[in-house]
């Protein structure tokens, strides 16, 4: 399995909700297969895994399945986790969650995208509209995006993956990742603007 792309959230990028320290004593107990330690790790990462899966897939039942399969894989592989190359435990676990989610999306061909639009080549460097600070509105707007676009956007802006890392994960080019981010932000901007008018 490929090591996680980042050891710690970049200061200039968002901090992943996964970035939680797991003590060496807890990790060692979990590696010995102690049920209480495994449950503690599960409780610690239950929400980040479920949230990632839900934001990317957009489906609660699928996110629930991803949570279960991810944690089973984590438990199955925890004995072999050594933190090589300074990989934090949370990064290793997150990578399993991302892989499991992408695998499911691939299986149902949800990562196929619409034709490239010339506007997709233009990066959106402008700040988001004020309505983006409203979590409910932003969640609703995200949900309406195509799955591939939403997934790239989430990996890039919420999890802090780089375009190169997203390209490798999704077996596409960095340009694909950049274009999906540009497209996604453009659509979000429109959706949030439209919602703001509708709510006014």
């Amino acid at each position: 399995m490929r090591p996680p792309p980042t050891d710690a959230p970049d200061a200039g990028r968002s901090a992943s909700a996964f970035a939680q320290p797991v003590g060496t004593a807890l990790l060692a107990a979990a590696q010995r297969g102690e049920s209480a330690a495994l449950e503690q790790i599960y409780r610690c990462f239950e929400r980040p895994v479920y949230t990632l899966a839900l934001r990317m897939c957009g489906d609660r039942d699928e996110a629930q399945d991803i949570l279960q399969e991810t944690m089973l894989k984590v438990i199955g592989g925890i004995g072999g986790f050594r933190g090589d190359n300074g990989t934090p435990f949370w990064g290793w676990l997150r990578q399993i969650a991302v892989n499991e989610t992408l695998q499911r999306l691939r299986r149902r061909r949800a990562l196929e995208v619409e034709a490239f639009d010339a506007l997709d080549a233009i990066a959106d460097g402008a700040p988001p509209p004020a309505a983006a600070a409203d979590a409910a509105r932003l969640s609703r707007a995200l949900q309406t995006l195509p799955t591939a676009t939403r997934s790239v956007l989430w990996l890039y802006h919420a999890e802090g993956y780089t375009h190169e890392e997203i390209a490798a994960l999704m077996q596409r080019s960095p340009s694909f990742s950049k274009s999906q981010v540009a497209r996604g932000l453009r659509r979000l901007r429109t959706l949030l603007g439209a919602q703001a008018y509708a709510d006014a």
């Binding site: 968002s14 901090a15 929400r47 949230t51 979590a135 802090g160």
Partner: peptide
């Protein structure tokens, strides 16, 4: 990034 980070975590 800030807007995404402010979205609440969802419980299963």
């Amino acid at each position: 990034q800030g807007a995404f980070a402010a979205l609440p975590q969802v419980a299963p």
